[in-house]
């Protein structure tokens, strides 16, 4: 899995800025979670990286259409979104059991974290490269 992180960090150098790198990591993670080549994503409320560089992610305007919801806050989360897979952008988002995982920056390093039970709840199976990021 270190290889994955290394690749992602390398992408950062190629992509030249944090925003592009963040988008690349989101793409990698969201595609793995949804197992779709072009997943539909609803962003609550905003994410500059994905809005600027969506990559293979299709940004939709409502939770109803979305395969997954990327949250930047849990405050006032629309009801329709609560039924969807939630993916956090802060470590603190993981305190909410509905959030299956998160990608966030800490100490200048990219961090990815999933909880095994939450993944199982949504019947999400990630490939072995994500094992290091899955907490029991």
């Amino acid at each position: 899995m270190r290889a994955l992180l290394f690749i992602l960090i390398c992408i950062r150098t190629v992509f030249a800025n944090d925003v592009a790198l963040e988008s690349a990591i989101f793409n990698k993670v969201i595609i793995a979670v949804t197992t779709k080549e072009y997943p539909e994503v609803y962003i609550y409320k905003e994410n500059k990286a994905l809005e600027q560089f969506p990559g293979k992610l299709k940004i939709v305007n409502s939770c109803k259409e979305a395969d997954i919801v990327i949250i930047t806050t849990l405050k006032n989360l629309p009801e329709a979104c609560k039924e969807k897979i939630l993916f956090g952008t802060r470590y603190s988002h993981l305190r909410d059991n509905r959030v299956v995982g998160a990608f966030f920056w800490q100490k200048g390093r990219p961090n990815i974290l999933f909880y095994k039970r939450r993944l199982e709840r949504y019947n999400i199976k990630l490939d072995a490269s994500f094992d290091k990021y899955i907490e029991k």
């Binding site: 992180l5 960090i9 800490q106 100490k107 961090n111 990021y133």
Partner: peptide, 13 residues
Amino acid sequence: NERAFLNQKFDTE
């Protein structure tokens, strides 16, 4: 904001 929690996983680079 940068401080981690006790037992929080640290992704080694």
